[in-house]
């Protein structure tokens, strides 16, 4: 009953903003800290999903559907990016037998 009443009254926009900011921060921290390239890729996806959540929340708040269409575009592009990213990783794995980003240090100076 309590859950149902929360859904009916609607959650105010601030909570969505805070939640998506936290998600975005988790994504950014993951990109900066993690060493495994595949996890870095997943963290980029988390960032994009934080954006999706924020857009949909604002869209509902303003009552216009622009941002909901935008979210579909973001999903499509995120899929394309993941494809490219994974194929680049396969290419690197063939040379290095590892996807640890600490090993990719041939270019420096």
């Amino acid at each position: 009953m309590i859950l149902a009443s929360i859904f009916e009254s609607g959650v105010s926009i601030q909570f969505y903003i805070v939640l998506s900011t936290i998600l975005f921060a988790i994504g950014v921290l993951g990109v900066l800290i993690r060493k495994n390239a595949i996890i870095v890729l997943m963290c980029v996806e988390i960032m994009l999903n934080a954006v999706n959540l924020l857009m949909v929340a604002f869209s509902t708040y303003f009552g216009n559907g622009d941002a909901q269409v935008f979210v579909f575009f973001i999903m499509v592009v995120a899929a394309a990016e993941a494809t490219i990213g994974l194929s680049i990783l396969v290419l690197l794995y063939r040379n290095n037998r590892s996807v640890d980003i600490g090993l990719f240090n041939k270019l420096k100076g």
């Binding site: 390239a37 870095v40 980029v44 990213g85 680049i88 290419l91 690197l92 980003i101 990719f104 270019l107």
Partner: peptide
């Protein structure tokens, strides 16, 4: 080096 450049640019 080329693959590495690609990964860096992509990330």
């Amino acid at each position: 080096r080329s693959s590495e450049a690609s990964l860096k640019y992509f990330m």
